[in-house]
């Protein structure tokens, strides 16, 4: 029952999937969020996780990126279980969570420089380019608590421009972002897919990038135990 959940339009494109999820089971407060959940994700694919509030979207993303270990089942990255190759998996992963991970007392540039250091692979000079791309040119030296919620979100999103990781896991990346920003962000996702990356995201927005998009709906999973 698992694999039919992902729409079939991408299935024949790439042979070896990057990410494979099998028989995922998660229970929270004695409520089954999903059971026997399975899907694959190949290069060039954008997977939108849908579901009502409380259906377990964020939980699923936290499990997928390795933050939460309250699950049963198998998550396989490049043919090897994630639990056995945590460092390598995290090197190839960018996760943007509910909280943008932006320090309020630091400036946008200082925040990004920290993430560059954490990543270890990023060249310092691209930081100003990334800030320009997310429309924060001229705000480099403003502490983030002086910026709006949307601008703070953009500081987080700027990390995507710096990243060379193939897998992006984005939890509601468009919250508080204006229309123009969402369009630019979608263009970025498409470009990422075209260079061979893949994306898993949750959003309540209607996405325009139908060529790359597949869906998984968690509502159908509720109560299937």
């Amino acid at each position: 029952m698992s694999d039919q959940l992902v729409s079939e339009n991408m299935s024949e494109q790439v042979s070896e999937p990057l990410l494979r999820v099998e028989n995922l089971f998660c229970e929270r407060d004695e409520r089954v969020l999903f059971d026997e959940l399975g899907f694959t994700l190949s290069a060039g694919q954008i997977l939108q996780v849908e579901g009502q509030n409380g259906s377990g979207k964020t939980t699923l993303l936290r499990i997928l990126c390795g933050l939460s270990r309250h699950y049963e089942g198998e998550i396989v990255w490049r043919g090897e279980p994630v639990s056995q190759q945590r460092e390598r998996y995290h090197r190839e992963l960018v996760y943007l969570g509910h909280q943008p991970g932006v320090k309020a007392v630091l400036t946008a540039e200082e925040n990004l420089r920290w993430y560059a250091a954490l990543d270890g692979s990023i060249d310092d000079s691209v930081i100003s380019y990334a800030l320009m791309q997310v429309g924060l040119e001229g705000f480099e030296d403003v502490p983030c608590h002086m910026l709006s919620a949307g601008q703070n979100r953009r500081v987080g999103l700027a990390r995507l421009y710096l990243s060379q990781a193939p897998l992006w896991i984005l939890d509601e990346p468009f919250t508080a972002i204006d229309k123009k920003g969402v369009a630019a962000q979608e263009a970025l996702l498409v470009e990422h897919a075209e260079r061979g990356g893949c994306v898993i995201l949750t959003t309540h927005q209607e996405l325009q990038l139908t060529d790359y998009l597949s869906h998984i709906n968690l509502d159908r999973q509720v109560g299937t135990s």
Binding site: G135, A183, A184, Q185, H192, R195
Partner: peptide
Amino acid sequence: MNDMGTKIRKLGQLSGTSE
């Protein structure tokens, strides 16, 4: 973000797996 018209600069290459 950028104007819709402005083309995004090419993203960097994806990092190799062994790096």
